[in-house]
Simulated scan of single mutants.
Amino acid sequence: MAQLTSIHRFPVKSCRGESVGSAVVEPWGLAGDRRWMVVDDAGAGITAREVNRLVLVHPEITDGGLRITAPDLPALEVPTPDPARQVPVAIWSSTLTAAAAGAEADAWISKALGVAARLVHLDDPTRRPTSPAFSEPGDLVSFADGYPVLLTTEESLAALNDVVLASADTGRDPLPMTRFRPNVVVSGVEPWAEDDWRRIRIGDAVFRAVKGCARCVLTTIDPDSAVREKEPIRSLAKIRRWDGATWFGINLVPDTYDVTIRVGDEFEVLEAVAPGSGPLRPAP
């Protein structure tokens, strides 16, 4: 039986994630996922693409906000900011406002990263719509790159690792799924079958598969050391390259809200297109 094998949320964009046994599905993604972001003095989002050390910052959601840790720094408790303290922020083509975490959090994150930075919280996710090119009016997203939920499959990772290990110059370990920062991982399907999915069900939650996920240099950063290497982009370019990009995983938009998904839930494909029809756009 195809099933959900793991669930991941990333409290702060580009920082280390948490594996959880269950999660509530909200219109803008899994509860607690990417509701915080690090920004520069101008309010532009900072990601691990530019500052690799972000992957070493470990945030944990608490009842009152966040607890964040990083190498060689004491842990810091960050209370959920007052929503009245809004500041302008930008992430990719989105411009909106978010609540400022305050001077203590800003000083801590700046020291952890070695660059001037601030921490902000998206108190109201309805401020950010998804890209209209691959979604519908009213679709929303938190501080995730473009869409609310990212799905990957264990079988596709195994197929990719076959290429990675075969082309390795020296012995190396297979790439872990953490390189790809998915929210949900499923198993019991064929490798790359996700290219053809258009509507899926996980437990009681239904999602639209709206776009393949183009992968960037963030996947080449080891989440445990922040060291950058050539994989998996090198191997993806051999087997998963088109439209000038490399592809792994699919972006989902929830059609069912306020339900809980759990590890072990049944996974079902509700709608699919013929193999080879292309993973980038919904079926016409």
Rank of each mutant, 00 (worst) to 15 (best):
R34F: 04
V25S: 02
P11F: 01
E26P: 10
G32V: 04
R9F: 13
G17T: 00
H8I: 01
A23V: 04
G21R: 12
E18I: 13
S22H: 14
W28G: 06
F10P: 02
P11N: 10
S6C: 12
V12F: 08
A31K: 12
W28V: 10
V25H: 01
A31R: 13
R9T: 14
D33A: 06
G29H: 05
H8L: 09
P27T: 08
V20G: 02
E26N: 13
H8Y: 08
T5N: 11
G32N: 09
P11V: 06
V20A: 07
K13I: 05
V25K: 00
R9W: 11
R16N: 12
R16G: 12
L30Y: 01
P27S: 08
V20H: 03
L30P: 00
E18S: 14
G21K: 12
V24L: 15
E18V: 12
C15K: 01
C15T: 04
S14E: 06
R35C: 11
E26S: 12
G21Q: 13
G17H: 00
R34E: 08
S19G: 13
G32K: 02
D33M: 04
F10C: 05
L30C: 02
R34Y: 06
S14Y: 04
P11E: 08
V20Q: 07
G32P: 03
G32D: 06
W28L: 08
W28Q: 09
S22Y: 10
V20T: 11
L30F: 02
E18M: 14
R16I: 04
D33W: 01
E18Y: 03
S6V: 11
L30E: 00
D33T: 04
K13H: 05
W28E: 10
E18P: 06
R34D: 05
H8R: 12
C15N: 04
V25I: 13
S22A: 15
G17N: 00
R35A: 05
G21C: 07
V20M: 10
A31H: 12
P11T: 09
R34T: 03
V12P: 06
G21T: 10
E26M: 15
R16D: 11
P11G: 07
S6K: 12
E26G: 08
A23S: 13
W28D: 08
V20R: 07
G17P: 01
G21V: 06
V24P: 06
A31G: 10
V12M: 11
R35W: 07
V20Y: 02
S14V: 04
G21E: 14
E18T: 13
G29Q: 02
G32A: 08
T5V: 15
S6H: 10
V12W: 02
S22L: 12
K13F: 05
G29L: 05
A23L: 07
V20L: 14
L30G: 01
I7H: 00
I7L: 10
F10M: 10
V25G: 01
R9I: 15
P11S: 09
T5Q: 12
P11R: 04
S6Q: 15
S22E: 15
S22G: 11
H8A: 09
G29E: 03
A31M: 12
S19E: 15
A23I: 03
W28N: 05
L30R: 00
F10W: 14
V12L: 09
G17Q: 00
I7C: 04
L30M: 08
S14C: 09
P11C: 09
S6Y: 06
A31I: 07
F10S: 03
A23T: 04
